[in-house]
Amino acid sequence: MAQTPEQKLEAMGLALPDAPAPAANYIPYTIAGKILTISGQIPLGPNGVEFVGKLGDTMDVEEGKDAARLCALNILAQAKAALGDLANIKQVMKIQGFVNATPDFTAHPEVVNGASDLLADVLGDAGRHARAAVGMSSLPRGVAVEVDAVIEIA
């Protein structure tokens, strides 16, 4: 019998957190027909905001990947809050990864792989997606990475 996404997370030593509350005047997700759009998720962990820093200055690619991975975990938490069960994800259509980076930093794709890899590991082919990985001069709360998602609902 195939593992559920939650069982895969557990096997990876990860727990799905409660869906983070919005930090400003927006909602965490919207649903239109069979499309779930999840607002940008920052690396919010059990102790609050994590991975504060700038790639190419105070953080390296591996730390950036870990930040992106935590963003993806929060995307999954929002998806579960919206859909009730991660098995209701038919396909992650697209993610956008925003990387807080110095002007000369160019490894944005490698950083955002942290999010892409987690989604594929947990959801299998349904987690494979189109994406953008772009550099920013700053991000909310000084975090290293922010990731949003568009998901097709089963």
Rank of each mutant, 00 (worst) to 15 (best):
Met136Ala: 13
Leu139Lys: 13
Gln96Leu: 02
Lys65Ser: 10
Lys94Leu: 07
Gly64Asp: 14
Leu139Ser: 08
Ala107Leu: 09
Asp117Ile: 09
Phe51Gly: 03
Arg128Val: 15
Thr58Pro: 11
Gly127Ile: 12
Leu9Lys: 01
Leu76Lys: 06
Val143Phe: 11
Ala120Ser: 12
Lys90Tyr: 11
Leu76Tyr: 12
Val49Thr: 13
Gly56Ala: 10
Ala15Ser: 14
Ile89Met: 04
Ala101Val: 07
Asp60Cys: 04
Val122Leu: 02
Ala130Lys: 07
Ala72Glu: 15
Thr37Pro: 03
Val150Tyr: 00
Asn88Pro: 07
Ser39Tyr: 10
Val122Ala: 00
Lys80Asn: 13
Asp66Gly: 02
Val111Trp: 05
Asp57Gly: 08
Ala149Gln: 06
Asp18Gln: 14
Val147Trp: 04
Ala101Lys: 13
Met1Val: 13
Ala115Gln: 05
Pro109Asp: 15
Gln41Ser: 10
Ala132His: 01
Leu14Arg: 08
Gly33Ser: 05
Pro109Arg: 03
Met59Arg: 09
Glu152Asp: 02
Asn74Ile: 14
Ala126Trp: 05
Asp18Ala: 14
Pro140Asp: 13
Asp104Ser: 12
Val143Pro: 09
Asp148Ala: 01
Lys65Leu: 05
Leu83Ser: 10
Leu119His: 09
Ala2Pro: 11
Val143Glu: 04
Arg141Leu: 10
Met136Trp: 05
Met136Ile: 03
Ile27Tyr: 03
Phe51Glu: 06
